[in-house]
Amino acid sequence: MRRTSLAIVGLFWWALAAAPLALGGPAPAGAERLAGRRLMEMLDEHQRTADQYAEGLVSVEAKGLVQFLEPAEVRGVGLLTIGHGERPDEQWFYTPAIDRHRRIARVEKSTRFLGTHFTYEDMQPRDIDDQEYRRLDDAELDGAVCYRIEARPRPKTESQYSRMVYWVAREPLVIVRSEGWVDGKLRRTFHGSEVRAVDGIVTPHRWVVEDTLRKGRTTLTLRNVRHRLGLGEELFAREAMRVLHAPP
């Protein structure tokens, strides 16, 4: 079994800002500036594993800077994303070996994110007004009764999922499971656990995504999560990709 690691200094909206609420959901109040480290462990259909790490900072302005830490051969490689709600995101890819950043075309939302079971859409922010919501019957998950909310994308919203179902724990009030459905078939499940409050904000520290088509799963673990940090706008600039940014 071969183990490799991929570490990322990043600004992951999904992993940090959105995780306390929902996959693809809006950021919680008071979470304007977040920082944290994430660890991903993938298990593919051949039972091979790969780890990914992220250590980063998050802004609710839907901006993200991802910088690889490991393996060493890609250390410093960066991906800068600036989201615009209904308009397409802007993205740049930085390669330190040639010291050049390159504007890239809009990434297909259903494309795998860096070889994991997450897709780019799963890692991107989503405006709360992009979906229509409906309350479903409550259900039990891991011995706890959860609210269930169905979300369907509005007509103008681009999404690979025809519907999402969020499972919200009652105490504390936090999403602990999300389901992504495509044309009536369950495509992915995201299971959140290790729920702890950090700086007053309830945060699941572990997420496991399972893909029904591409067998296997990816586990994402958050570490060193911090909220309410004052990050400068200049962090989300192309020139900023030339230097690795450790979280404060």
Binding site: L57, A72, E73, R75, G76, L229, G230, L231, G232, E234, L235, A240, V243, L244, H245, A246, P248
Partner: peptide, 17 residues
């Protein structure tokens, strides 16, 4: 205000052969 740089005194080294 958080600076753009790594924390003061931090050293980041990568070696490629």
């Amino acid at each position: 205000m958080i600076g753009l740089c790594p924390p003061a005194g931090a050293t980041d080294t990568v070696v490629a052969i």
